[in-house]
Protein backbone atom coordinates (compact mmCIF):
# COMPACT_ATOMS: atom_id res chain seq x y z
CA UNK A 1 0.00 0.00 0.00
CA UNK A 2 1.25 3.47 -0.88
CA UNK A 3 0.93 6.33 1.56
CA UNK A 4 1.67 10.01 1.01
CA UNK A 5 1.37 13.04 3.28
CA UNK A 6 1.33 16.72 2.37
CA UNK A 7 0.04 20.01 3.72
CA UNK A 8 -2.91 21.72 2.02
CA UNK A 9 -6.10 23.60 2.93
CA UNK A 10 -4.54 24.62 6.26
CA UNK A 11 -4.23 21.04 7.44
CA UNK A 12 -2.27 17.82 7.05
CA UNK A 13 -3.51 15.57 4.27
CA UNK A 14 -2.81 11.89 3.73
CA UNK A 15 -3.48 9.62 0.77
CA UNK A 16 -3.57 5.83 0.99
CA UNK A 17 -3.83 3.68 -2.12
CA UNK A 18 -3.66 -0.02 -2.77
CA UNK A 19 -3.03 -0.57 -6.47
CA UNK A 20 -1.35 -3.26 -8.55
CA UNK A 21 0.86 -1.00 -10.62
CA UNK A 22 3.19 1.18 -8.58
CA UNK A 23 3.99 3.70 -11.36
CA UNK A 24 0.28 4.16 -12.06
CA UNK A 25 -0.42 4.51 -8.35
CA UNK A 26 2.27 7.17 -8.01
CA UNK A 27 0.83 9.05 -10.96
CA UNK A 28 -2.65 8.88 -9.46
CA UNK A 29 -1.31 10.19 -6.15
CA UNK A 30 0.35 13.10 -7.95
CA UNK A 31 -2.95 13.79 -9.69
CA UNK A 32 -4.98 13.57 -6.46
CA UNK A 33 -2.54 15.87 -4.65
CA UNK A 34 -2.62 18.31 -7.56
CA UNK A 35 -6.43 18.21 -7.53
CA UNK A 36 -6.55 19.08 -3.81
CA UNK A 37 -4.21 22.02 -4.34
CA UNK A 38 -6.15 23.18 -7.41
CA UNK A 39 -9.41 23.14 -5.46
CA UNK A 40 -7.75 24.95 -2.55
CA UNK A 41 -6.73 27.71 -4.96
CA UNK A 42 -10.40 28.08 -5.93
CA UNK A 43 -12.06 27.90 -2.50
CA UNK A 44 -9.61 29.53 -0.09
CA UNK A 45 -10.90 32.70 1.55
CA UNK A 46 -7.35 33.51 2.69
CA UNK A 47 -5.93 33.60 -0.82
CA UNK A 48 -6.79 36.99 -2.35
CA UNK A 49 -6.40 35.50 -5.83
CA UNK A 50 -8.83 32.62 -5.30
CA UNK A 51 -12.08 32.53 -7.23
CA UNK A 52 -14.02 32.67 -3.96
CA UNK A 53 -12.13 35.80 -2.80
CA UNK A 54 -12.87 37.43 -6.13
CA UNK A 55 -16.57 36.59 -5.80
CA UNK A 56 -16.60 37.95 -2.24
CA UNK A 57 -14.95 41.17 -3.45
CA UNK A 58 -17.18 41.72 -6.49
CA UNK A 59 -20.45 40.40 -5.14
CA UNK A 60 -21.51 39.03 -8.49
CA UNK A 61 -19.52 36.96 -10.91
CA UNK A 62 -19.53 34.24 -13.54
CA UNK A 63 -17.77 31.35 -11.84
CA UNK A 64 -16.16 28.03 -12.72
CA UNK A 65 -18.00 24.71 -12.45
CA UNK A 66 -16.44 23.73 -9.10
CA UNK A 67 -17.33 26.93 -7.26
CA UNK A 68 -20.82 26.79 -8.75
CA UNK A 69 -21.27 23.20 -7.60
CA UNK A 70 -20.00 23.74 -4.06
CA UNK A 71 -22.04 26.91 -3.54
CA UNK A 72 -25.05 25.00 -4.85
CA UNK A 73 -24.38 22.12 -2.44
CA UNK A 74 -23.88 24.54 0.46
CA UNK A 75 -27.15 26.34 -0.25
CA UNK A 76 -29.00 23.02 -0.51
CA UNK A 77 -27.45 22.01 2.81
CA UNK A 78 -28.62 25.28 4.36
CA UNK A 79 -32.19 24.46 3.39
CA UNK A 80 -31.89 20.83 4.50
CA UNK A 81 -30.44 21.67 7.90
CA UNK A 82 -32.88 24.47 8.63
CA UNK A 83 -30.10 27.07 8.41
CA UNK A 84 -27.71 25.40 10.85
CA UNK A 85 -25.25 24.87 8.03
CA UNK A 86 -24.75 28.24 6.38
CA UNK A 87 -22.06 29.34 3.88
CA UNK A 88 -22.73 33.03 4.65
CA UNK A 89 -21.04 32.95 8.07
CA UNK A 90 -17.93 34.61 6.59
CA UNK A 91 -18.39 38.01 8.27
CA UNK A 92 -19.32 36.42 11.60
CA UNK A 93 -16.09 34.38 11.47
CA UNK A 94 -14.06 37.47 10.66
CA UNK A 95 -15.82 39.40 13.43
CA UNK A 96 -14.93 36.60 15.86
CA UNK A 97 -11.27 37.08 14.95
CA UNK A 98 -10.80 34.31 12.38
CA UNK A 99 -9.71 36.76 9.70
CA UNK A 100 -6.45 35.09 8.69
CA UNK A 101 -5.26 31.51 8.36
CA UNK A 102 -5.64 29.63 11.61
CA UNK A 103 -1.85 29.38 11.99
CA UNK A 104 -1.68 33.18 12.02
CA UNK A 105 -4.72 33.60 14.30
CA UNK A 106 -3.41 31.14 16.89
CA UNK A 107 0.16 32.49 16.64
CA UNK A 108 -1.10 35.93 17.65
CA UNK A 109 -2.15 34.51 21.01
CA UNK A 110 -3.85 36.54 23.66
CA UNK A 111 -4.01 40.22 22.71
CA UNK A 112 -6.22 42.95 24.12
CA UNK A 113 -5.72 45.14 21.06
CA UNK A 114 -7.60 42.76 18.74
CA UNK A 115 -11.00 42.59 20.36
CA UNK A 116 -13.48 40.79 18.12
CA UNK A 117 -16.39 42.83 16.83
CA UNK A 118 -20.00 42.18 17.77
CA UNK A 119 -22.01 39.38 16.15
CA UNK A 120 -22.73 39.61 12.42
CA UNK A 121 -25.89 38.52 10.72
CA UNK A 122 -25.88 35.29 8.72
CA UNK A 123 -28.43 33.66 6.37
CA UNK A 124 -27.58 36.19 3.64
CA UNK A 125 -29.16 35.95 0.23
CA UNK A 126 -27.20 34.17 -2.51
CA UNK A 127 -28.59 33.67 -6.01
CA UNK A 128 -27.17 31.02 -8.32
CA UNK A 129 -27.95 31.00 -12.04
CA UNK A 130 -26.82 27.55 -13.16
CA UNK A 131 -27.33 28.15 -16.86
CA UNK A 132 -25.16 31.27 -17.01
CA UNK A 133 -22.92 30.06 -14.14
CA UNK A 134 -23.40 33.34 -12.34
CA UNK A 135 -23.47 33.79 -8.56
CA UNK A 136 -24.87 36.93 -7.02
CA UNK A 137 -24.46 37.86 -3.37
CA UNK A 138 -26.59 40.43 -1.61
CA UNK A 139 -24.66 43.55 -0.56
CA UNK A 140 -22.68 42.81 2.60
CA UNK A 141 -22.89 39.02 2.12
CA UNK A 142 -19.66 37.03 1.84
CA UNK A 143 -19.14 33.30 1.59
CA UNK A 144 -16.99 30.96 3.64
CA UNK A 145 -16.83 27.44 2.18
CA UNK A 146 -14.11 26.16 4.53
CA UNK A 147 -15.52 22.85 5.74
CA UNK A 148 -17.70 21.86 2.80
CA UNK A 149 -14.95 22.73 0.31
CA UNK A 150 -12.53 20.53 2.20
CA UNK A 151 -15.03 17.68 2.10
CA UNK A 152 -15.52 18.26 -1.62
CA UNK A 153 -11.76 18.21 -2.27
CA UNK A 154 -11.48 14.96 -0.30
CA UNK A 155 -14.26 13.41 -2.40
CA UNK A 156 -12.61 14.52 -5.63
CA UNK A 157 -9.21 13.16 -4.58
CA UNK A 158 -10.87 9.86 -3.60
CA UNK A 159 -12.55 9.74 -7.03
CA UNK A 160 -9.14 10.06 -8.67
CA UNK A 161 -7.47 7.38 -6.54
CA UNK A 162 -10.53 5.12 -6.49
CA UNK A 163 -10.14 4.40 -10.20
CA UNK A 164 -7.01 2.39 -9.42
CA UNK A 165 -8.06 0.51 -6.32
CA UNK A 166 -9.09 0.74 -2.68
CA UNK A 167 -8.09 4.11 -1.31
CA UNK A 168 -8.52 6.50 1.57
CA UNK A 169 -8.11 10.27 1.63
CA UNK A 170 -7.78 12.13 4.91
CA UNK A 171 -7.66 15.93 5.09
CA UNK A 172 -7.44 16.95 8.72
CA UNK A 173 -10.20 14.61 9.82
CA UNK A 174 -12.41 14.71 6.72
CA UNK A 175 -12.02 11.17 5.46
CA UNK A 176 -13.34 9.47 2.32
CA UNK A 177 -12.79 5.77 1.69
CA UNK A 178 -13.32 3.63 -1.37
CA UNK A 179 -13.37 -0.06 -1.91
CA UNK A 180 -12.76 -1.98 1.28
CA UNK A 181 -13.12 -1.82 5.06
CA UNK A 182 -10.67 0.79 6.28
CA UNK A 183 -10.13 1.05 10.05
CA UNK A 184 -10.78 4.67 11.05
CA UNK A 185 -10.20 5.95 14.59
CA UNK A 186 -12.77 8.09 16.41
CA UNK A 187 -11.76 9.97 19.53
CA UNK A 188 -14.38 9.17 22.19
CA UNK A 189 -13.05 11.50 24.86
CA UNK A 190 -11.51 8.79 27.00
CA UNK A 191 -9.97 6.68 24.25
CA UNK A 192 -10.14 5.77 20.60
CA UNK A 193 -12.73 3.65 18.90
CA UNK A 194 -12.12 2.01 15.52
CA UNK A 195 -14.80 2.03 12.82
CA UNK A 196 -14.63 -0.07 9.69
CA UNK A 197 -15.56 2.13 6.75
CA UNK A 198 -16.01 0.87 3.19
CA UNK A 199 -17.38 3.14 0.47
CA UNK A 200 -18.24 6.23 2.46
CA UNK A 201 -16.91 9.10 4.48
CA UNK A 202 -16.60 10.47 7.98
CA UNK A 203 -16.01 14.01 9.20
CA UNK A 204 -15.62 15.65 12.58
CA UNK A 205 -16.70 19.13 13.64
CA UNK A 206 -15.85 20.55 17.01
CA UNK A 207 -14.58 23.34 19.15
CA UNK A 208 -11.61 21.44 20.58
CA UNK A 209 -9.05 22.44 17.97
CA UNK A 210 -9.56 25.72 16.15
CA UNK A 211 -10.05 28.01 19.11
CA UNK A 212 -8.30 31.19 20.22
CA UNK A 213 -8.40 33.85 22.89
CA UNK A 214 -8.77 37.59 22.47
CA UNK A 215 -8.71 39.76 25.53
CA UNK A 216 -10.30 37.60 28.19
CA UNK A 217 -12.71 35.87 25.82
CA UNK A 218 -12.37 32.45 24.20
CA UNK A 219 -13.56 31.90 20.62
CA UNK A 220 -13.84 28.97 18.26
CA UNK A 221 -14.55 28.59 14.57
CA UNK A 222 -18.02 27.04 14.51
CA UNK A 223 -20.42 29.93 14.10
CA UNK A 224 -24.05 29.43 15.03
CA UNK A 225 -25.89 31.22 12.20
CA UNK A 226 -28.80 31.84 14.57
CA UNK A 227 -26.68 34.14 16.76
CA UNK A 228 -23.79 35.08 14.47
CA UNK A 229 -21.42 34.09 17.28
CA UNK A 230 -19.34 30.97 17.98
CA UNK A 231 -21.71 28.23 19.11
CA UNK A 232 -22.36 28.03 22.83
CA UNK A 233 -23.88 24.54 22.71
CA UNK A 234 -23.12 21.61 25.00
CA UNK A 235 -21.09 19.57 22.51
CA UNK A 236 -17.32 19.44 22.23
CA UNK A 237 -17.25 17.66 18.89
CA UNK A 238 -19.30 15.47 16.57
CA UNK A 239 -18.14 12.81 14.13
CA UNK A 240 -20.67 11.82 11.47
CA UNK A 241 -20.67 9.17 8.74
CA UNK A 242 -22.22 9.77 5.31
CA UNK A 243 -21.93 8.64 1.72
CA UNK A 244 -19.57 11.51 0.83
CA UNK A 245 -17.15 13.68 2.79
CA UNK A 246 -19.06 16.75 1.60
CA UNK A 247 -22.23 15.42 3.19
CA UNK A 248 -20.42 14.14 6.31
CA UNK A 249 -19.08 17.69 6.85
CA UNK A 250 -22.59 19.13 6.59
CA UNK A 251 -24.10 16.54 8.93
CA UNK A 252 -21.32 16.84 11.54
CA UNK A 253 -21.68 20.62 11.66
CA UNK A 254 -25.47 20.55 11.74
CA UNK A 255 -25.48 17.97 14.54
CA UNK A 256 -22.86 19.93 16.48
CA UNK A 257 -25.01 23.06 16.35
CA UNK A 258 -28.14 21.13 17.32
CA UNK A 259 -26.86 20.37 20.81
CA UNK A 260 -26.51 16.90 22.35
CA UNK A 261 -30.16 16.00 22.91
CA UNK A 262 -31.50 17.14 19.54
CA UNK A 263 -28.42 15.83 17.70
CA UNK A 264 -28.94 12.35 19.12
CA UNK A 265 -32.60 12.41 18.07
CA UNK A 266 -31.76 13.66 14.57
CA UNK A 267 -28.93 11.17 14.02
CA UNK A 268 -31.26 8.33 15.02
CA UNK A 269 -34.09 9.63 12.85
CA UNK A 270 -31.89 10.05 9.77
CA UNK A 271 -29.84 6.88 10.42
CA UNK A 272 -26.65 8.90 10.45
CA UNK A 273 -24.00 6.99 12.38
CA UNK A 274 -22.55 9.61 14.72
CA UNK A 275 -20.44 9.98 17.79
CA UNK A 276 -21.28 13.00 19.94
CA UNK A 277 -18.82 14.04 22.63
CA UNK A 278 -20.22 16.52 25.16
CA UNK A 279 -18.30 19.29 26.88
CA UNK A 280 -18.28 17.25 30.10
CA UNK A 281 -16.65 14.34 28.26
CA UNK A 282 -19.63 12.00 27.72
CA UNK A 283 -19.64 9.99 24.49
CA UNK A 284 -23.05 9.44 22.90
CA UNK A 285 -23.38 6.89 20.10
CA UNK A 286 -26.26 7.56 17.72
CA UNK A 287 -27.65 6.61 14.34
CA UNK A 288 -26.98 2.92 14.67
CA UNK A 289 -23.42 3.28 15.89
CA UNK A 290 -22.94 1.05 18.87
Amino acid sequence: MLRRGFHAMGTDCELFLKARSRPEALRAMDEAQWEVRRLESIFSRFDPDSELSELNRRGTQRVGPELLEVVDLALAARVRTGGRFDPTVHDALVAAGYDRTFEEVSAEGRGDDHRPSPARRCAGSVRVARRTRRIELDPGVHLDLGGIAKGYAVDRAADVLGELGPCLVDAGGDIAARGRGWPIGLDTGDGTLTLELGDGAVATSGRDRRHWTRGSEGFHHIIDPATGMPSAGDLLRVSAVAATATEAEVRAKALFLAGAERAEREANATATPALLVTLDGRAIFAGGLA
Binding site: E14, F16, L168, D170, G172, G173, D174, I175, G181, W182, P183, I184, G185, L186, D187, T192, L193, T194, L195, E196, L197, G198, D199, G200, V202, A203, T204, R209, S239, A240, V241, A242, A243, T270, A271, T272, P273, G287, G288, L289, A290
Partner: peptide, 16 residues
Amino acid sequence: APVVRIVHLPPITTTR
Protein backbone atom coordinates in the same frame (compact mmCIF):
# COMPACT_ATOMS: atom_id res chain seq x y z
CA ALA B 1 -25.14 6.77 5.19
CA PRO B 2 -23.03 3.66 4.64
CA VAL B 3 -23.18 0.91 7.21
CA VAL B 4 -20.23 1.01 9.56
CA ARG B 5 -19.24 -1.29 12.36
CA ILE B 6 -16.96 -1.04 15.32
CA VAL B 7 -13.93 -3.32 15.04
CA HIS B 8 -10.99 -4.13 17.27
CA LEU B 9 -8.17 -3.09 14.98
CA PRO B 10 -5.58 -0.34 15.20
CA PRO B 11 -6.83 2.60 13.11
CA ILE B 12 -4.95 3.55 9.98
CA THR B 13 -5.88 7.17 10.62
CA THR B 14 -8.10 9.05 13.07
CA THR B 15 -10.80 11.59 12.32
CA ARG B 16 -10.45 14.74 14.38
